[in-house]
C-alpha cells in the first residue's frame, strides 16, 4: 500500500471535528442536493440533461427554503418559550 493510499484510508478511521455552532447546520445542504438528485432520477420518465438539472435545482431550492423556514419557526418558538 502506498503512503498516499494509506493516508486516504486513514482519513476514514477518525471523525472530523465539527463545532457545535449554527454553521454546522450547513451540512444539511449537500444532503438535500443528494436527495433531490436521486429523487428526480427515479421520478422522471425520460432523462434530458437540461430538464433534469432544472427540476433538481427547483426541488433543491424548495426543500432548502422550507428547511430554513422551519429553522426560523423553531428558533422563534424556543425564544417564545424560554424568554
Amino acid at each position: 500500500m502506498t503512503p498516499d493510499m494509506g493516508a486516504i484510508l486513514g482519513a476514514f478511521t477518525v471523525p472530523i471535528d465539527i463545532p457545535t455552532d449554527p454553521m454546522s447546520t450547513l451540512w444539511m445542504f449537500p444532503l438535500l442536493l443528494s436527495i433531490s438528485i436521486v429523487y428526480k432520477a427515479t421520478k422522471m420518465r425520460v432523462l434530458f440533461a437540461r430538464r433534469f438539472a432544472k427540476e433538481v435545482a427547483v426541488l433543491f431550492g424548495t426543500i432548502s427554503v422550507f428547511m430554513v423556514f422551519l429553522g426560523v419557526v423553531l428558533i422563534l418558538l424556543v425564544k417564545l418559550l424560554t424568554e
Binding site: F12, P15, S34, V38, A41
Partner: peptide, 15 residues
C-alpha cells in the same frame, strides 16, 4: 450520488 453521499458520511464520522 449514493456512493458519494455514503463516502462523505464515512469520511465525516469515520467507519
Amino acid at each position: 450520488t449514493v456512493t458519494l453521499t455514503f463516502l462523505a458520511g464515512l469520511y465525516v464520522g469515520s467507519i
